[in-house]
Computed example of a mutant assay.
Amino acid sequence: MRVLVAEDDRSVAAALVSVLTRAGHVCTSVARGSDVLLLHKEADVVLLDLGLDDADGLDVLRQLRKVSGVPVMIITARSDERSTVRGLTLGADDYLVKPVRLHELLARLGAVTRRYGAPSEIDDIDVGRIRIDVPAHRVLDSDVEISLTPTEFDLLVSLARRVGRAVGRQQILDEVWGDAYAAKSRSFDVHMAQLRQKLPALRITTIRGFGYRLESST
């Protein structure tokens, strides 16, 4: 896999490149946001620090999402909720706070990239006026296409496959993010909030202490 590592700290960048290379990936390391925008077409995934030499990583992500759907994992020292929420709502697929456990990084890297190309045996799912075309990764609300990120789409499919049934939070985490995904991460809640905002016709009920249920009618 071709990985673009955007990190201004040379020691951190070298450590990431070393681990990824040993895992069989081909890495390009840059320290400037302008280089991310220049080289993203040559990458299968981008690891993005928020403190780059020439720009804030969130601004780079915002510009990148105007032109590309390449998977982006934010790796940063910023652990505040505002940065996490902004990063995920701007289109990041995952958000990791330094110091990063390298085995978890590799597992989550694999989970993110699988969401972009994994085939599915499910065809269409209809929930009220919402139609989910699983093979094409498309969602229609009364024939109007709704743009979802791959993570949001897989979260929706996980619930839609069990319309009317309670689905545990941990089960969704395992299906969408993989076993290594940290259950306490804010990523899940941000993506769920985005899904609800983009598809207000769907009623997703929170079951306290357990998980969620996608209701069969609106």
Rank of each mutant, 00 (worst) to 15 (best):
G33N: 04
L61A: 02
V67C: 11
L58Y: 04
R10N: 12
T21H: 01
V45N: 00
D44M: 04
I74G: 07
A31L: 01
A15D: 06
E42M: 10
D53I: 08
K66H: 09
S79N: 15
Q63E: 14
V19T: 11
E42T: 05
R10M: 14
G24H: 03
T21G: 09
R62N: 12
A31I: 08
L50W: 05
T21P: 01
S11D: 13
L58D: 05
S79G: 15
V60N: 06
L47V: 05
R32D: 06
S34T: 12
L16S: 09
A23S: 04
R22Q: 09
A14P: 01
A55I: 07
L48P: 04
A14C: 10
G57N: 03
A31E: 15
D59S: 15
S18I: 00
A23K: 08
D49L: 11
G69I: 12
S34A: 12
S68Q: 14
G57L: 10
R65A: 10
L16Y: 15
L47P: 09
D49W: 08
S29T: 14
A77E: 06
V67Q: 15
L16C: 05
D59F: 03
I74D: 07
D53W: 14
S79K: 15
R62Y: 10
V36L: 14
A77K: 05
L64A: 02
L61V: 06
H40Y: 13
R78M: 07
R32P: 01
V30E: 07
A55F: 11
H25G: 00
Q63T: 09
